[in-house]
Every structure is written in structure tokens, then in C-alpha cells.
Amino acid sequence: MPADLVTSIIAGVPLPTLIVDRDERVKAMNASAAAMFGAAGTGRHYVTVLRQPALLDCVEEALRLRQARKARYLTTDLAREATYDVIASPLGSDGGQGVVVVFTDITEREQMGQIRRDFVANVSHELKTPLTALLGFIETLKGPAREDAAARERFLEIMGREAERMNRLVSDLLSLSRVEAEERMRPEKRVDVAALLRSSVQALRPLAVDSRVEMVLEGAEGAVHVLGDADQLTQVFHNLIENGIKYGGTGGVLRVEMTESPRELAFRGPGVRIDVIDRGEGFDPVHIPRLTERFYRVDSHRSREMGGTGLGLAIVKHIVNRHRGRFRIDSEPGKGSTFSVMLPVA
């Protein structure tokens, strides 16, 4: 087959593709393959172009045995690590005209598989701790503490806390699942975000009083309408304000501010911004990119003691995304933290 015809054919293949002829040289490659291995590879021995041992073995066996062979190709460029499934298939009626090597990018599939494995491992770990505690206390109540009324009351109180922790975890997992399923469907109802914010602050004021935190709400006097899901936006405000009371309450004051903007830069149009500002300990900004990951915590021990599940900010991120908004976190050790939600105004 003429070289120019071969080049034309593989140029139309959407996957990185190259051809190694019977002389073991790279006869042709399309643009995607040239981007991976360099256009100068055409005409060179395939060993000097492909290089990875697993890939070389795949091509060598396909040439020698005249049978299709598969391999896994791993590469790293400036942007990311990539994984490819590689198939080397013989060419010609007798398989003696060389092989065509096709690369299929499976990076996203591999990443999703890893995310699922990490998620299962994290859920198992989060459930195992309270379950172990419950089983231990039940065993103790059946045996040594059977007749000890004081110990029984203390153990039952701890068991109640651990059971409540599991209940919160399951509730947050179900909530996260629902939010992710609806993330691509933008809400169509007009809701008053100011009224939702006032309601959330009022509902959490007893928790602030118990934690000796002064809660100040500003800018939410009038009505501000957005296209939104009232229940989900309420969940966002509850999560952020409750976190501010629990983890930023050491500063004694929690400010909740709402600001309207006729031209919010995030949307290039009118928007509303809700800031939850605490004067607590703050944290190193190095944690910010990962705070919305499932089960990621700045201080795991303290978070569990406070009853946190590690899913709250992940839920907030997905809800804000569904509303086509923006979510921003700013913090500095010793200077408190600011959690900001920006929503487009209807």
C-alpha cells in the first residue's frame, strides 16, 4: 500500500495511531500519535520511538507471531498523567505487512475507578469506628457492667452519640448522592435567598448561644430572588453557618453578610454574594483546594469530635454548581476563615 495512502487513512482515525512495517520501522503516524511520540519518529526503528518495555513487547510479539496483542501504556506530560490501552494488530491478509498500533485513552475511566475505591474505603473507615465502639460497649454491658448503673448510663450516652454519628453519615451520603444526580439540572423556581438566609440564621441561633458565639447578620433585609431549590440552598447556609459556629467559634463572633452586585464578575451580570466570616483559628491555605473533597478534613480528630462527617463542603460545592454559582474559601492561620457563595440573580 502506498505510503501516502496509509498516511491519509490513519489521519482520519480519531485515536493516536501508528504503523510499524515488516522492517520494524515506523511507517506512518497520525497527528495524535505524533503529539505523543514526536513527528520525527516516522522512519525510525520502533524501539527508539515507543521505548516502554511493555509496549515494545506488545509490538514485537504482534510482528513475530502475527497475532493481535494488548498492552497498557503510561505517560506523563506537563498537564497530567495518562493511561492508554494499546492494541497492536497485524496488517495484510497473512499478517506479514507489519502492525497497526492504536492507543485508547482510558485515563478518566481509571480515575473514576480509583475514586470509587477511595470512596468505599473512606465510607468503610468512617462506619467502622462507631460500629466498633458500639459492639465493644454492648459486650461490656452484657458482662462486667451488667449491674453497674453509673457505667451503664455513661456507656449508653456514648453509644447514642456514636449511633447519631452513623445516622448523620448515612444522611449526608444520601444527600450527596441526590445532589450529584441533579447537578446538571438547573433549578427553575424563583426563591428569595435573603429569606432563606434569615431563616437559617434564626434556626441556628440557639446553637450559637450554646457555643457562646455572637452571630451577626447583615445585608439580608430585602428580598433577593434567584433561580434555585429552596431546600438545597437552605442546606448550604446551614452547613456553612454551623461549621462557622463549631470550628470558628473560638473567635466569639460569626458574621453572615449578604451583598448584591449589579455586575458580579463571576457571572458578568447581576449576582448576590453570601459570606460566612469567622474569627477563629483559621488554617493553612494549602488545604483549600482539597476542602471540598469527600471526607477531607483539616483536623480529622477535632472534626469527628464535633460530629462532622467530612461531607458537608462536598455537598455545598455540588449544590452551588447546580445553581451555576461559585464557591470560594479564604483562610489564614490566626485570622479566621471566610466561606463565600456567589449566585446569579434571577
Rank of each mutant, 00 (worst) to 15 (best):
R146M: 01
Q97E: 05
A150S: 06
S171H: 13
A121L: 03
A62W: 07
K70N: 06
A149Q: 11
E81Q: 15
E139M: 08
R117S: 15
G143F: 04
E182R: 15
A163L: 14
V101W: 00
S177N: 10
A121F: 09
R69W: 05
C58F: 06
R109T: 13
E108C: 05
A68R: 14
R152W: 06
E108I: 08
T104R: 05
T140R: 01
T140F: 03
L173T: 12
G98E: 01
D94G: 09
G92Y: 02
S124T: 11
A121V: 09
L135A: 15
A62K: 05
S175N: 13
I87P: 02
E108F: 10
T140N: 01
E61I: 14
Y84C: 01
V100T: 10
E61A: 14
D77Q: 02
R116A: 15
V99I: 02
L78A: 15
E180M: 15
R178T: 07
E139L: 07
Y73N: 02
R117F: 11
A149T: 12
K70E: 13
E157V: 12
I87R: 08
V102N: 06
R154P: 00
D172N: 13
V86Y: 08
T83D: 01
F137N: 14
L169G: 06
A79D: 11
H125Q: 10
T129F: 06
A62P: 09
V86R: 08
L78D: 12
E183G: 03
Q97T: 03
E110L: 10
R184L: 11
R72D: 03
R117Q: 15
H125R: 14
L141P: 11
D85R: 12
V123D: 04
V179W: 01
E60W: 02
V170W: 04
E60T: 14
S93W: 06
E157S: 15
I87F: 02
M185V: 11
R72Y: 01
G143H: 09
N122M: 07
M166L: 13
E147W: 04
T75C: 11
T76A: 10
T129A: 06
I115Y: 06
G98L: 05
D105Y: 08
D94P: 03
D118C: 07
A181Y: 13
E60D: 09
R109D: 10
D57N: 13
D105Q: 08
A151H: 09
S124D: 07
L176R: 09
D85M: 01
A88Y: 07
A68F: 01
E61H: 15
I115A: 10
T104A: 12
I158K: 10
R69Y: 05
A151F: 08
V100F: 00
V59M: 05
S89E: 07
D118R: 15
L127M: 13
A149F: 09
Y73Q: 00
A71Y: 03
Y84W: 05
G160R: 13
N167L: 13
K70G: 10
